[in-house]
Design a protein around this nucleic acid. Sequence first.
DNA 1: CAAAAGGTAAACATGG
DNA 2: CCCATGTTTACCTTTT
Length: 408
Amino acid sequence: INPFVSMPTNSLSYLLCFPFSLSHEEHPHSHPLYGHGVCKWPGCEAVCEDFQSFLKHLNSEHALDDRSTAQCRVQMQVVQQLELQLAKDKERLQAMMTHLHVKSTEPKAAPQPLNLVSSVTLSKSASEASPQSLPHTPTTPTAPLTPVTQGPSVITTTNMHTVGPIRRRYSDKYNVPISSADIAQNQEFYKNAEVRPPFTYASLIRQAILESPEKQLTLNEIYNWFTRMFAYFRRNAATWKNAVRHNLSLHKCFVRVENVKGAVWTVDEVEFQKRRPQKISGNPSLIKNMQSSHAYCTPLNAALQASMAENSIPLYTTASMGNPTLGSLASAMREELNGAMEHTNSNESDSSPGRSPLQAVHPVHVKEEPLDPEEAEGPLSLVTTANHSPDFDHDRDYEDEPVNEDME
DNA sequence: CAAAAGGTAAACATGG
DNA sequence: CCCATGTTTACCTTTT
């Protein structure tokens, strides 16, 4: 039995919506972090006689500091994973119903304020139907690489200015270029929220160019694409434009072509794929890495458990993670946290300097495959496998909030 | 810890 | 001269 069945959909969707509407102001004496006389801050459980003392407690014990910030991030991860799982299960349910020819009585879960996040996971399969079959097909077939993580989730910057934008790219890892679909799924979000997209300039530039009908753009057109697609790039123009030019010149994968009407930029896909050719594979250093990060597993695991408990998700502890759903949740979690590593999968490392870039790239994807939670099975222990994401410890790295509003 | 990659700044060249 | 476009170099930070 799928544990999610018993899960109060509302609470989850509330949980998911929470970041969007921090407006519990409407309920003077209720607070998502307060219930049954205890503080529900992850891992806290301090007893608070009344709401007032709770507030006091909240402000004193969970003030804005490194610890709270870190805990908040952990919570974000939890939410993301739950969301991912929900999406998957919805998809599964849909498929089951389709298969059984049942009319879609699908629970009207999750209204849609969270579509940004969930759409990513939901439409993962849709990425096959990439609007314009980009030339990078060789890399896509093993699609599990597509964001299991939702980049800087909505939660991140919009509602946590104090924490700042988490800079993490995902499509750049593994040389997986972003596809139109990847961006399209988040398009609306990035168009409107001043969140730094989790892609490198190079990836974005490439994307811009590939999206164009002629697969070529002038510098100015690239600029325009940036501003059109990302609210983030509607400010500090001098900075990012300089970066764009810098990238165009620096990377061999961008080729300037003289045109009748000046110059346009194109992408040399082969060159693009060459970046970071030898990807980790069964690399011992990874395992070491895994162990060294033990410290972070505990809070994370605790947070996950807490979160699950709150949502009435039966928590089979690590040992009994036999339940496919939880197992996949857990592995999804691990994946999120581990990122590239955890592939004890001893694929012979083709450390040979890439002969053909495309060949060199391919095996990488094959071995990254367990990214899909469905695939990774087994009673894996969260505790022993979870690794901290780099975001968890470095608390500052977002010098980005220039107060000056020199927009264009 | 070191190297690579990525981001930001800035100097400088060139052509309109 | 100013501005857009490129090219480079330098210096950080983050990732591997």
